[in-house]
Structures are given as structure tokens and as C-alpha cells.
Amino acid sequence: MSDLKIAVIDVKPGASMESQSGLQMLRPRIFGAYRAPADRRKVAAIVMHPTSNFMGHYLIEPLAERGICCMGLNSRYMGNDTLLLMERAIQDLGAGVKYLRDAGYEKVVLIGNSGGAALASFYQAQAERLTATQFPDGDPTHLHADDLPPVDGIALCAAHLGRSRLMRDWIDPSVTDEHDPMSVDPALDMYDPRHGGQGVQGVREVQGVQEVRYDADFLARFSAGQQARLDRIEQWAMDRLRTLRATPGAPRDQAFIVYRTHADPRCLDLSIDANDRAPGSVWGDARQVNYSANAMGRTTSLTAFLSQWSSRSQADGPTNLARTSVPVLLLTYTADQSTFPSTRDAWMAAGGDRIRNVDIVGGNHYLAGQPALVPQAADAIAGWADGL
């Protein structure tokens, strides 16, 4: 097996000031890290996330040991999704696919891990039939079919359904003032102990954390409040965008903040969408994450919000997966705190006869501290990829 190699890949320019680096804007590049098995050019894989740094991904080395070149590829938005456009992220992914095709690999597959699952599905759907000719704000994407060479299969692991669905499920409906992160309506606050049912029969302590139970009425009001808040933000974003673009001399975009975006009752109530998880969030204490200065979708722009987080996003995972025709493997990590049985079921329904599920029993979202489970995931992916 070769040493770790670094890929430096030129990509097409994007929006004005999408980076604070003048060098990156003048010569935009993306970077990947991979191991190439010696004397074997059969299958290569790309694992990519819209914004996370995957150059150190835990599957790179195990897959190389199993004869598959695996590249952890970063998009141009690595570490900062403030201006991220999903339509531009798939263009970056396409540049990575071209890189591996040019290197002589017979087959290329995508590994959609976590938020990379919807990205991979969006990519292949557009590679098979390009429809994303405009961004949700109406501007042209300038995507071309040759930007998106099709792949031969998609493997999904700990797979979120897409950023718009995450925002729908995680946004805190108790915010009463969009300019005040501490504003709260107690009637819709899932972290208010009056709603948690703590101490009722059947509620237990799991790994030192008190599990809670929410009643059906609160959950219904909570979900309706989430949708109402998201609708208000989306309408404001559309109205503001129209105002800016109708005003001579005004900018075409604007940054803003979405406070408190980590309020999913499943973090605390393990009876909802039950799996093997412990109470809490993949990032630690769920309430602390909810109120933190940096969290999912916290800082965004009008165009990025529409592309990633809104109902107008074109990057919904299952919707796009259903439009593809390639074989699909789904790895379900059964102790994940952010993907659940309903998540698995949505992917399975979208994949139809082309998809097969493998449970990684006890796996948390990152397989963190679980070295025995990483080979299980690698074995499943390698066996599936070799059979394509």
C-alpha cells in the first residue's frame, strides 16, 4: 500500500467573495487525501461532505487495505458553510470524480457519510439528468453535464437526509426574537423541565444522563412551531433578496444569523424513533449546542440559506436518490444520536430494489472510540464495491 497522497484539484470559480482568500478566488482549488493500493486500479471511492474536513476520514486507510483507493475530498467550503451553495459543492465533487477517472480507475463510487449522503445523492441525480440549471434564488448555476461524470454506485453511512430536513427537525421553535439568542417561549421550550416528564414511571438514567418523556400534545405543538419558524425565516429571506435585487447599488446577498438550531426531542426522549443511542447530541450536551455561538446553520447568507436549509433546496437526499439508477449500500449505525430508524426507512424507500442495508450494531455517528466497528464498515463497503 502506498503512502498517503495529496490531490490538488483546480475547480471553476464561484460567487464573488465566496472566500476571504484572494488566492483561492483567483485560482480556486480543492484538496483531497487518498491511499492507492499498489498495482490495483479497479475501484476508487470518494468520501466528501459539503463542509467537514474529510481528508482524515476513518475509512481511507481501511479501504485501501481492502484494495480500494479511498479519497477524502474537501469542497471549497471546507470549515465554513456561510456561503455554501449545494449546486457548487456537487461541481467540486465532480472534479474529484474526474481526477480518479483520469487516474485510470475502472469504477468510481461515492461514500456519503453523514451530511455527505445527501450530497452524493444530489450529485448522482444531476449526473444522470441535469436539472439544477438555476440556484433557488433564480440565478444560473452554469453547471454542465461534463462537470458531473456519473459514478458506479453510492454507499451511505450514518446518513442524514439532507440539510433542509435537518433544519426542519432541529430548529428551535421557542425563539421569540430572531435578534436575541436568549429569547424563549417556555410553552415551546423542549429544554424546560416542565415538558420533559422527568421522574415519571418508565423514565430512566442512561450513562449518567436523565432521559425524559414528552407527551404527544407537546410534540405536536413543538413540530408545528418548528415549521412555522422555518417558514417565517424562509419568507423573510425571499423578501429580503427581492428587495436587495430591486435596489440600485445594493448587494445581491446578505449574511444573517439563525439562532438555536439544535432542538430535536429525540436527543432527550429515547422512546421517539428508538435505537441504541444514549441521551444527548453527537456534539455533546444538546442544550449547550443549541445555545452555542457556532452550530448548524448558525451564520448563513440569503442565497446559502435557500440552497442548503430551506424548502427550496434542491439537495434533499431521498428525493435525489430515487432519481438515480445505480446500486446503493446503506450502513445504519444503530447507536447514532442523529440518524434513526425513520432515517433508514426513508433511504430504503428511496432506493427501492437497488438498496441494501447493513446494520453496524452499536455504532455511534462517528464510530468514535469504536475501533472494532470501523473494519466492519470497511468490510461491508469493500465487499459491495468489489461486486459492482
Rank of each mutant, 00 (worst) to 15 (best):
A7N: 07
S16L: 14
S19T: 14
F31K: 12
Y34I: 05
D39G: 13
A45Q: 00
I46C: 01
I46D: 02
S52C: 09
N53E: 09
G56P: 01
H57Y: 10
Y58D: 08
E65Q: 15
R66G: 09
N80H: 07
N80D: 15
L100R: 03
G104A: 10
L110C: 08
A120P: 04
S121A: 12
A125L: 00
A127S: 09
T133M: 05
T133A: 04
D139K: 10
L148D: 04
A158P: 00
A158Q: 09
A159D: 01
A159N: 08
R163K: 15
W170G: 02
I171A: 08
T176R: 09
E178D: 15
H179P: 00
V184M: 13
V184H: 09
V184R: 14
M190K: 07
M190Q: 12
M190L: 15
M190F: 07
R194V: 11
E205A: 07
Q207C: 04
V209C: 01
R232L: 11
A237I: 04
A237L: 04
F256I: 05
I257A: 12
V258H: 01
R260I: 08
D264N: 14
A274Q: 15
V282F: 10
W283C: 00
D285I: 04
Q288R: 13
N294D: 15
A295W: 04
S310C: 07
Q314K: 14
A315L: 01
P318Y: 02
T319N: 12
A322G: 09
R323Q: 13
P327F: 02
D336V: 08
S338D: 13
F340W: 14
D345P: 00
W347T: 06
G351C: 08
G352F: 05
Y366P: 01
Q376E: 15
D379S: 08
A385M: 10
